[in-house]
Every structure is written in structure tokens, then in C-alpha cells.
Design a protein around this nucleic acid. Sequence first.
DNA 1: CATCTATTTCGAGAATTTTCGAAATAGTAT
DNA 2: ATACTATTTCGAAAATTCTCGAAATAGATG
Lengths: 106, 106
Amino acid sequence: MKLEQAAKQLEALGNPKRLNLYRTLVRAGEAGRPVGYLQETLGIAPSTLSHHLHRLILTGLVTQERQATTLICRANYPVMDDLLGFLADECCADAACGPAVGEAAA
Amino acid sequence: MKLEQAAKQLEALGNPKRLNLYRTLVRAGEAGRPVGYLQETLGIAPSTLSHHLHRLILTGLVTQERQATTLICRANYPVMDDLLGFLADECCADAACGPAVGEAAA
DNA sequence: CATCTATTTCGAGAATTTTCGAAATAGTAT
DNA sequence: ATACTATTTCGAAAATTCTCGAAATAGATG
């Protein structure tokens, strides 16, 4: 996985509307969801949804399959797994990777 | 983890320069890296780097610690883990998808 | 205090994204 | 072919992001 592509995918997910859309598909699983259903559920204009969907599809995160006049959208799990792997993979690759205790803003 | 915050974090990572920056920190581990080192490594103007760093810090993905005049930057692993969890968590929650049935939040 | 290094803030121009309505296209059925 | 539903493409306005140089700030040291 190249950095450029990972960035594209993260950018695609980094918009609330698109993330919500993608999550809906992730939860839908193999069944997928038709574009029309997504449009009603998310409450955005058809042209706007189409635009967002297109971006998700370009990155490979979502696929579509035609069923008559309806387009079924599905989350592409392997692509998501690759992306998650990319993020987690090189943890501490350049250091002695200890247990990473969280001094986070708790 | 709220959708809005996850989107912010993904958006922060969804820029090649920032993703590269973040990856450098992830690989650096607990040692972290000083801003100046990052600036040279990534080859961008100090003000630009500062801007990107600020965005990463706002989302919680990166933390800073002062050491004299130098600022050490570190990846905040727990935050990344939360984000990865958010993405993977609800896989197929609305479908028959095997073992992913621990969800009571939604 | 003057000065040096490290980093951020300010201000602004260029590029990109987001949004939507209107019009176009894909597919089905009559 | 005509009509109908589902979805995309086009065109354009508003908002946001990205970038950098110049000036400002934080902290250490002489």
C-alpha cells in the first residue's frame, strides 16, 4: 500500500457525510444498500450523494453492482483492512517499541 | 467515539504531507521527533509544517512535549487505536455477519 | 539585557472541496 | 417509441484548505 493511496482513502473517509455513508455500508454488510436508500437515509441531494459516492468508489473503498435500474453499493472490506494495516503496521519501526502507555489527554 | 471526531481525525490523516508526517512519528515510537527534524525530513516550510502539526494535535493524534527550546512530537497511539476500532467495529452490524454481535451503544 | 535557536502566528493568494438544481443518461416495461 | 424510475453529469457559487514569507514569541545562554 502506497502512502499516496492511503492518503486518498483517508481523505475520502475524512468527511462527516462520507464517513456516515461509508459506515452505513459497513454495517449493511454483504447485502449492501441501494443509492436511493442512502439518499433518503442521509438526507442529502442526489447529486451531492453521487459525488461523495464517486469519491469513495475511486479509492476502492466502495463498490457498486447494478440490479435493474437500481445500483447496490457495498463496502469493500479488504480495502479497508489494507488501510487499517497500513496505519497500524509500522508502529515503532524505528524505535524500541515499548507498551505505548497513554499519557493522552485523559 | 463520535462520528464527527473520527471524521476530523481521518481528514487530518488524509493529506499526503500530514500522513507522511504522522507515519514518521508512528515509526519513531516513544522517542518522538523534534519539529526541526521533521521540517528537514519532510522538506516543507516551517510555517507549513507548523500548520499541519497543529491540525494533527487538534485531533489528538499527536502530542508535543517541550525540551528546552525544542518541541518533541509524538504519535498518540491510544487515539489511533480508537480510530481503528471505530472503523472496524460495526462491521456488518445490520446484517448476518458471524461473530460481530457485541453492540449495545448505537 | 542582548542575542541566538526553535517554532508559531499572521496575512494572503492559489487550489480544492462541497453543495445543489437542472438537465442528461441507464434501464425497464408498456 | 414513450413513459417511468433511478442515478449521474454539468455548471457554478460558497466555503475550506494549502502554501509560504515575514514578523512575532518561547526559552536558553553570554
